[in-house]
């Protein structure tokens, strides 16, 4: 009797397994390989070690990704037939004066943080929209100090009342005290971690998109 999936446990294993493997190759492995080949040809501006550390903290230690996206979506349905450009999707217009994000802008980044939720604003171009270091320190120390009703969590443990030691390029910075911080000490210092995270945020200014404009 020929063995089939109804009567042979071996077939119950082999048939679904082999169909699945073929599909995974077609839908995930081959596309990833070709995207990876295209990526190799792309050149990206150098990243400073400080910003790279900031990104690591953002992604791996504080996991800011859960509330913030880094992608400006392009409306492929309204592609310009003449020059092939794609307009920014209406819902993302506030973040996207430089156009939709491209593969180039994510090239050579470990786990690009396109994100899934906009509990907070998109940060792809935060370096352009908010270039002030002090603002970011206030905001990290207590988001409600600069953005009333914010539901972002506060990171007071990235600050200290005494001057902390520098770590490599990350030199602690003094935070200007403003009313809303609710801080009653004499001095407030941004720790090396805070300095690195803010350096990373400021580096998010879409150099490639601006260059191509």
């Amino acid at each position: 009797m020929p063995s089939n999936i109804h009567t042979s446990h071996r077939m119950v294993f082999l048939l679904p397994a082999s169909i699945y493997i073929v599909l995974v190759v077609v839908i995930a492995i081959l596309p990833a390989m070709s995207a990876s080949t295209e990526e190799k040809a792309l050149e990206v501006p150098p990243v400073t070690p400080l910003a790279a550390w900031g990104r690591e903290l953002y992604r791996e230690k504080y996991n800011c990704v859960v509330c913030h996206t880094q992608q400006i979506r392009g409306d492929v349905r309204r592609r310009n037939e003449v020059d092939g450009s794609v307009p920014v999707l209406a819902a993302d217009a506030r973040f996207g004066l430089e156009g939709p994000t491209t593969a180039e802008e994510y090239a050579h980044q470990e786990a690009p943080m396109l994100g899934t939720q906009r509990t907070g604003p998109d940060l792809m171009s935060i370096g352009i929209r908010m270039p002030s270091r002090q603002w970011h320190y206030w905001h990290l120390y207590k988001p409600q100090s600069v953005s009333p009703d914010s539901t972002m969590e506060a990171y007071p443990y990235l600050f200290s009342s005494e001057k902390p030691k520098a770590v490599g390029d990350a030199v602690p910075e003094k935070v200007e005290l403003i009313e809303g911080l609710g801080y009653d000490g004499d001095e407030l210092w941004a720790t090396p971690e805070a300095v690195a995270i803010v350096e990373y945020l400021l580096s998010l200014d879409r150099p490639l998109a601006r260059k191509n404009r």
Partner: peptide, 27 residues
């Protein structure tokens, strides 16, 4: 039985895939 096989492949792909950067990582 099939799910046990599939999840093993999925986890291996998730952790050991060699495409860890850029758009390939997102695919």
């Amino acid at each position: 039985l099939a799910s046990c096989f599939w999840i093993a492949i999925i986890v291996v792909m998730g952790y050991l895939s060699p495409w860890k950067t850029g758009i390939a990582d997102r695919i």
